[in-house]
Design a protein around this nucleic acid. Structure first.
Lengths: 99, 99
DNA sequence: GAAACGAGCAACTAAAAGGTTGCCTATCAG
DNA sequence: CTGATAGGCAACCTTTTAGTTGCTCGTTTC
């Protein structure tokens, strides 16, 4: 997931889908300075990371933002922060104890 | 920052520094199945992302985990989640209103 | 002071990622 | 039915990234 987000183009795509609107590949390609195929590839990367999902509708694939992974990451980082505070606390205690 | 975290090796390095201990490059290279130079390069990537910082001590560079960017990201994602809930709410209202 | 250790730098190779082009299929509109 | 539109697939090129090797330099240690 970090890898999927670690690309400006993909972040931009997510930004456009973030409004909640479902968009086709061609639609998403309009602003981008790259071909439809390139956009398509990026969307698949995002899809593999579950940040986005597609649904075929007639002749077009509509992509939509998927918030679950973001939420999961948020929760995970909360844990990281909390544990790190614990680590700092123990280090502080250790240093003070050894003076 | 996403790009920096989007690499297994670097995540592993962060994992080892996460304990709060400062470690030298050679120390960090021990478990890794790659050369010291490769580890060194990864550490610089992490350093550029401010996830880690080094301090020279005699002939060795000691690297330490830096929690600030993680915290920033956590806060940022909080905003993302909150706004997204807003987006969903508006969409729901719109759909119901248009029926 | 010499051997050993920790690390930096530069050049190089290999592999992966980002992008393009060309062609083909399915769907929609006239 | 025909033409235009949306997209998939595969081959290809180019740039970046991950990793290695060889050499050099400063710091310890004996």
């Amino acid at each position: 997931m970090f890898a999927a987000l670690g690309d400006e183009t993909r972040l931009a795509l997510l930004g456009r889908l973030y409004g909640g609107e479902r968009m086709s590949i061609t639609e998403l390609s309009v602003g981008a300075r790259m071909t439809r195929q390139a956009v398509s590839k990026h969307l698949r990367v995002l899809e593999r990371a579950r940040l986005v999902h597609a649904s075929r509708e007639g002749r077009e694939s509509l992509y939509a933002f998927d918030p679950a992974p973001v939420e999961e990451m948020r929760v995970y980082l909360e844990g990281v922060s909390a544990q790190w505070d614990g680590v700092l606390g123990r280090l502080k205690a250790f240093v003070e104890g050894s003076v």
